[in-house]
Design a protein around this nucleic acid. Structure first.
Lengths: 209, 209
DNA sequence: TTTAATAAGTAACATTTATTACAAAACTTC
DNA sequence: GAAGTTTTGTAATAAATGTTACTTATTAAA
């Protein structure tokens, strides 16, 4: 079998015929940490399935301010790309590799017919929509109802879960950009967390206790 | 034909067989202004198609604070209900009639098979997802990148568009709840808009100039 | 028409977040 | 290890939003 990761991550999602077809027509692409996978206004001709790594989905306003909306993990797809492909419109988000990642890209034409013929594919897409909807709602909750200290703490906990490691490698500036605030605000709050014994700070590194 | 509104709003979306089936199995429900159509945590067994009126889709946090996410208009459906029905989960949002409204409710079982057999239905659902995604992104943008004065002005303009009337009937308290802020903040900003000749205020009424 | 209830106006103050500016610490490079 | 660069710490201040408390205006009810 050509692609081990494809089987590992998607064998329980798609039937073997579909897996083989994906394997045949899908194009593997690899990205390094911080690579832009898809940028805002870029037209989309492929549906990506994430085989390994993590991808940050970001929104940007007209002044270049960014906001992290959610992360994609291996075994997931970006439903934004689906809606874009259907409407042959352009990407409304930026996708950035949060770590080294690999994707398999499926041309839109194929996925249109699968949607019609293949129940596994259909369910995968509909479940993806549900997951993304839920994450968008959570993003809205975070922004609307939570203060910056709560948002930051949640962000840290989420990173710990994603990487299954208590140690986060990041600079305050990066975090500030994800949460759309300023570095000073993040440094201040992190120091406060450290005083409360929630974390331990060092250069480029945050240890969650 | 049993239901005029169904034809008026959906004839160009679905083929005539599907329209007739919807007409046959769908249950019409009418709501008065401010009625709660679906509440948070309520299980969903029906997909609603909006025949007339406007519906507010709201999110609520654990302290009972609300936030308006978007409006539904006639000819639309709530994709939240789709994801809920698929996963047989509970509503994550509250739907409130913004004015007297009528819906046709379709049992989930039927819509599952249409999804498989009927291209018109499939496209309608996928387009609905796209529209809702875009509106969620806009909600996120509003919260992340805009200040309260901008959010308020956008809210007013949106209301004017929806009702095709320059006059908005609402009290400051209602607006404050939709935008999740306090009445005093809204009164202050509205007064500022009035001084800038953008609007004209009176009790329960805002005229957008 | 007086009274009560609701809605809006506004001042004073508190809190949260953003900004500016600079110093100290931790790494890199030569 | 000296010099430069990057990252973090922190104070002072500004701006935006939230809160409290009270007044005034408008409408509804008695």
């Amino acid at each position: 079998m050509a692609n081990e990761l494809l089987h590992l991550k998607f064998d329980h999602v798609f039937d073997s015929d579909l897996i083989n077809e994906i394997d045949k027509i899908g194009v593997i692409r690899t990205f390094s940490k911080n690579d832009i996978i898809i940028d805002i206004n870029q037209p989309l001709q492929y549906i990506p399935l994430l085989l390994s790594g993590h991808i940050k989905i970001l929104r940007e306003d007209s002044d270049g301010n960014e906001l992290l909306i959610y992360f994609l993990e291996a075994g997931e797809t970006c439903t934004m790309s689906l809606t874009c492909c259907m409407g042959t419109s352009k990407s409304k988000i930026r996708a950035v590799a949060e770590m080294d990642s690999s994707l398999i890209m499926i041309p839109v034409q194929n996925m249109q017919s699968w949607f019609h013929n293949n129940e596994g594919w259909r369910n995968f897409i509909l479940e993806s929509y549900q997951t993304r909807f839920d994450e968008m709602l959570e993003a809205i909750d975070n922004l609307a109802f939570m203060k910056m200290d709560e948002r930051l703490y949640k962000y840290l906990i989420n990173k710990v879960k994603l990487h299954t490691s208590k140690t986060i490698i990041a600079k305050h500036q990066d975090i500030a950009e994800d949460l759309h605030t300023s570095r000073v605000v993040i440094s201040r709050l992190l120091k406060q967390f450290e005083n409360e014994k929630k974390i331990k700070l060092s250069r480029n590194k945050i240890e969650v206790l």
